[in-house]
Amino acid sequence: MPSATPLLFVHGFWHGSWCWSEVVPHVVAAGRLAVAVDMAGHGLYARRPRWFTEQPYDPEAVGTEVSPVANVTLDDAAALLTSQIKQIGGGEPVTVVAHSAAGPVLTRVAQQQPELVAHAVYVAAYMPASGVPAAAYSEMPEAADGLVVPLVQGDPARIGAIRLDFATGDPVYRRQLYEAFYGDVDRALADAATGLLTPDGPAGVMVGTTPLTRDGWGSVRRTYVTCTKDRAITPAVQATFVAEADAAFPDNPTSVVTLDASHSPFFSMPDVLAGVVTSLG
């Protein structure tokens, strides 16, 4: 029988808790308590740069304006998620489902307070090895076919954010955004989701590192949900995460579930993804 632990869903960069709105009803219908939360610098915690809303549109500012979330670090994101887990679980462990750039945040929390995480579930997410920043995986040969890095605007080290230009009217750029995140998602739904995205993901989340130990993250049960059509975090990079984790902690191997999906299965197959996570103990 699956565990009755609550399920907490955390979105990736540029998104918000809203991206789980098609998944949570399926999970609740299956009898599990579930809630989606906003990550630091996103959703209700997002702060938009001036260029994103000011008129006329200033393409030069897109690459130069310092982000209003430039001060958000991996420590900050982990502290927020820890507080959310404690609130939802009442001090008892919960199953945390992290997508994309929420992965390093979940990893930090599970390392610092493994007793709070009953099961760490990574959905097409960064699952960095000990002491390795998530950003490093974008520079690997396995990431060469990824579509996100070419879309990034400005120097993240200078502006403090991984910035995408959702305000541009460039049809080529917008098509690449669709292919990177929503390649198998109904176009109308993808367009609606794109309209909700915020441009800046805090660079500090991606450059922070977490030393992992056997008694910390290495002790937490984990599952990796890999997406075979992913153009944001390529399947080869996803396989690297699993291989590194299993090499470091062979006594606690990663369970792997494979979905024939793009980077956003919460939109393209929400019922299937809900079935996967509710089946996990």
Rank of each mutant, 00 (worst) to 15 (best):
I88G: 00
D38P: 03
V105M: 02
P49W: 06
V62N: 08
V121M: 03
D38I: 07
Q112I: 06
G31E: 08
A98D: 00
R50Q: 13
P104I: 06
A118T: 00
V121A: 00
E92P: 00
A120K: 00
I85S: 02
E60K: 14
E65M: 14
A77T: 03
P128W: 11
T82L: 11
Q112N: 12
P114S: 07
R50P: 00
E115C: 09
L81M: 13
A110M: 09
V96E: 01
Q111W: 14
M127G: 01
D38W: 04
V123L: 13
T95Y: 05
R32G: 02
N71G: 15
P114D: 02
H42A: 15
A129W: 13
A40L: 07
A36L: 09
P68A: 10
T64D: 07
Q87C: 04
P93S: 12
P93I: 09
A46I: 08
T95C: 12
P59I: 07
E115G: 15
T64K: 14
Q84W: 11
A70K: 09
V97Y: 01
G41Q: 04
L44S: 15
R32T: 11
A118D: 10
Q55H: 14
M39Y: 01
V69W: 07
P68M: 10
P56Y: 04
A77N: 03
H42I: 05
D58I: 06
V121W: 02
V37G: 03
T95N: 03
A120F: 10
L106G: 06
V69Q: 09
V72K: 02
P49E: 04
A77E: 05
R47H: 12
W51P: 05
V72R: 03
A110N: 06
A120S: 12
